[in-house]
Amino acid sequence: MNQLFSLIWFTLKEVAFQRIYKILLFSLIIIPWLLLIPTSLFMLDMGKVFMDMLFTALHAWLTAYLFFLAVPLLVRDVEQGICSIFLTLPMSRGLYLWGRFIGVISSIVPLLLCYIISAVAAFFWAESSWPNYVLPDSGLSFCYGSMLILMPYLALAAVLFLIAAGASGSAEITLFLFSVWLICWALPPVLDALQNIEVAESTPAWTGMLLYGINQLLPDLSSSQISLSLAHQLPLHPTSVFAYCIQHVTYAVLALIAASMVFKRRDLS
C-alpha cells in the first residue's frame, strides 16, 4: 500500500509541476468569466446557455488533459523507459498501472475544483446582475453535472492505459485514443436514437438487444442527457445517476484489469 500511495503522490507532483498544467489551471479560472461574454448575447436563455457553454468547456479541457498531459506521461514511461524506475524498486506491473492511473485522475481534482469554484462565482455574479434570466441554484446544478461528466473520462483514461499497455509508441497511443474518443462521441447518440421506442417498434427485438450491447462497449462521452437535464433544470432520477456512475467505474476497472494483463506479458526494451 505504501508503494501505491507513494506512486500516486509522485504522479500527482510530476503532472502538477509541468508548465502545461499550470497554464491549464490558470485558463480554467478565467474561462467561466470569458464565457459570460458570448452568453450575454442570449439574454432570454442566459442561465441555460451559460451552463451549456461551461459543460462544453469542461469536455474540451478534460479531453485536452488526457491528450496533452496523460498521453505524454505514459509515452515517456513506456517509450523512454521511465517505468523501469518504478518497476525495479521492485513494484509489480499491476500496481504500477493502478498507481499511475489514480495519480493521473487525482491530478484532475485541483483543476476541476478551480473550474467549479470560478464557474459558481460567475453564476452568482450572473444571478445578481441579471436575476430574471438566470435561474437560482444554477451553480449547484453545474457542480453536480461536472462530477457526473467526469465519470466517462475516468473510463476513457482507463482505455488510454489499456492502449498504452500494448502500444509501441506515441503515434500509436495517440491514434488509438483519438479513434476511441471519436467513436465515444459519435456513436452513443446514434445508438440511443436507434433504440428509440418508435424505431424499436418497427425493428426486430434482437436488433434492439444488439444495439444495447454495442452501446455498452464504449463509454458515452457526450453525456448529452445529463447536460440537457441540468441546463433545463429537469429532474435526474437517482437510480439512473447511480447506474451511470457504476457503469463508468466498472468500465474503468475492467479496462485497467485488462491493461494489467497486457502489460504483464510485455517486454520493456
Binding site: 509522485f10 503532472v15 509541476f17 509541468q18 523512454q80 521511465i82 523501469s84 524506475i85 525495479t88
Partner: peptide, 13 residues
C-alpha cells in the same frame, strides 16, 4: 537496483 544505459528521469521534478 538498475541504472539504464540512457537514464530517463521525470524532468518536471
Amino acid at each position: 537496483s538498475y541504472l539504464p544505459e540512457l537514464p530517463q528521469l521525470p524532468t518536471s521534478l
